[in-house]
């Protein structure tokens, strides 16, 4: 446990030193700011009260595209610079390295999510009688769980590469594929479609968390994806020794 925290803390701190994290934060807040303004303005023109979804929706999409940039360096960089050699010869288990890295990036994204709370706070001020607190909580819980699974996939994929850019695009590819794999289900229907829809990352977010509905199966789904990705990442680090 101590090792995981040591590694997570180091990862968290180094994200604040790396320009990538700042660039990613800038992108998130810039795009969020524009979309938030546009959505609130749009709602005002249509004479309807903007709901919390105007924050949660864009945030989910932006995180889908930005999390690979946060995880891309985690293990790929250690491999390239040779520091993995010292990490893997220190008395630290392979899975502790992977979980530590993931936890560090998760803490960073959690902080970013925390900062985005300014939007619901603003929204709460301008909307009468205030926004739906249930939707807010379930939306953010969903975002957090979903991002945790994105990051787990990202860290795991990063272990396969010693090049950050390669890790970025591979992660983005996998996330997008898992994000859209439910689409063919609309055509297929029946059994195969059900399976695809169950695998789909977005199918466990938009119908439930996003709409303010909390369902155990969705929580279990994201936790399972996260665990599976971290397990595969650990195996990948371990097999690296054999290569």
């Amino acid at each position: 446990m101590r090792n995981i925290f040591s590694i997570a803390r180091k990862e968290f701190k180094s994200l604040f030193i790396s320009p990538v994290a700042y660039a990613v934060s800038l992108a998130i807040f810039l795009i969020m700011g524009i979309l938030f303004y546009a959505n609130v303005l749009g709602a005002a023109y249509q004479q309807i009260a903007p709901s919390i979804q105007v924050v949660i929706g864009p945030l989910a999409t932006i995180l889908l595209f930005t999390t690979p940039a946060i995880t891309m360096r985690t293990l790929a960089d250690e491999q390239k610079s040779g520091t993995l050699e010292i990490l893997l010869t220190a008395p630290v288990r392979d899975w502790e390295v992977v979980i530590g890295k993931w936890l560090g990036t998760l803490a960073f994204v959690a902080l970013v999510l925390l900062i985005t709370w300014v939007y619901p706070i603003i929204l709460n001020q301008i909307v009468d009688p205030g926004i739906d607190q249930g939707s807010l909580v379930s939306g953010y819980l969903g975002l957090f769980l979903m991002v945790a699974s994105f990051l787990a996939i990202g860290v795991s994929v990063s272990s396969l590469f010693s090049n950050q850019i390669a890790a970025f695009f591979a992660t983005l590819g996998i996330l997008l594929a898992l994000w859209m794999i439910g689409y063919p289900a609309q055509i297929m229907g029946s059994m195969g479609g059900e399976v695809l829809r169950y695998i789909d990352l977005s199918e466990h977010f938009y119908p439930t968390f996003y709409r303010g509905i909390l369902e155990l199966k969705d929580v279990v789904y994201y936790l399972s994806v996260t665990s599976l990705a971290l397990l595969l990442g650990s195996i990948s680090v371990e097999t690296r020794r054999w290569r």
Binding site: S14, I17, S18, S81, G82, T83, L84, E85, I86, L87, T89
Partner: peptide
């Protein structure tokens, strides 16, 4: 252990 490529984090 001191490996051949010195394992350092330049940003620390």
């Amino acid at each position: 252990y001191l490996p051949e490529t010195v394992p350092l984090y330049p940003d620390m």
